[in-house]
Design a protein around this nucleic acid. Structure first.
Length: 255
DNA sequence: ATGGCTACTCCTAGTAGA
């Protein structure tokens, strides 16, 4: 069973690549972030022709999340509790194939110390509270997405350069650790310990060509799923060629 | 030393991303 997270950076621009990727990789569940389309503009018909079911919530210009799946999703939730009126569409969750799936696009944070940075830290905190009140870490639960945090020194291309910077500041890393402490494991780190494994590369600065990236897209799983997880693979090839997203798809493989 | 690109919008310049 393959469960994927991919920040597509506009589902409309990325649709040809998305459809091609689906056909070649046949994931069971695909969590997308930054769809950047209101629900009326979401390319549902094109996706449904592939045979995938799809749930989504979007807004104009920014954010937006979706889950594609082979089998039907149930218990769909499209906002964190209390955020039902928040314009920022960053959260979608559902039960699929007996696994509780939570797909998130954590706020970027803009600048350390800014209002948006506080919103990011607070968003993390509310996500943790949602887990506390809604689920049990003994359940098979997977939370994935673009977390906009590089968890440790191995996940940035230059520790010295990134120290204290957005995505790698101590409060952000603590917020991420606090989320994990609910009872989650970083699926990729169950299988790979190397530094320099990235999921995002800046369009500017030729980041990809120079090997300068960050690992900010994660698949976090409870123990009962960790025991079923045989590997996590990052599709770096998808960052190449015509009109790539700046993020690569990250695939968790489960028995 | 800087900044580079991409995608968005009541669109051709300003905002945001990370």
């Amino acid at each position: 069973m393959k469960i994927v997270t991919w920040n597509v950076n506009s589902i409309r621009v990325r649709l040809p690549r998305l459809l091609s990727w689906l056909e070649r990789n046949e994931p069971d569940i695909l969590c997308l972030q930054e769809t950047k389309a209101v629900d009326l503009d979401f390319p549902l018909a094109e996706i449904e022709t592939t045979g995938y079911k799809c749930i989504f919530t979007g807004q104009k210009s920014y954010n937006g999340v979706a889950i594609l799946s082979r089998s039907e999703a149930s218990n769909v939730i499209k906002a964190l509790p209390g955020d039902e009126n928040d314009q920022e569409k960053r959260f979608i969750a559902a039960k699929i194939e007996n696994i509780q799936i939570i797909n998130v696009y954590v706020p970027n944070g803009s600048e350390v110390g800014s209002e948006k940075y506080q919103y990011k830290l607070n968003w993390y905190k509310r996500l943790r509270e949602f887990l506390n009140t809604s689920f049990d870490p003994k359940e098979p639960l997977l939370i994935c997405g673009d977390f906009n945090v590089a968890p440790d020194d191995r996940d940035v291309w230059d520790v010295k350069q990134w120290t204290g910077k957005l995505h790698f500041s101590e409060p952000e890393k603590e917020a991420h650790q606090n989320l994990m402490a609910w009872g989650l494991k970083d699926a990729l780190r169950l299988h790979h310990q190397d530094s320099g494994i990235y999921t995002w590369w800046d369009y500017r600065s030729l980041g990809f060509q120079r090997g300068l990236g960050l690992r900010i897209d994660h698949i976090l799983i409870t123990d009962s799923l960790a025991s079923r997880c045989s590997d996590v693979v990052i599709d770096r090839n998808e960052r190449k060629g015509e009109k790539p997203s700046d993020h690569a798809p990250v695939t968790g493989i489960f028995s």
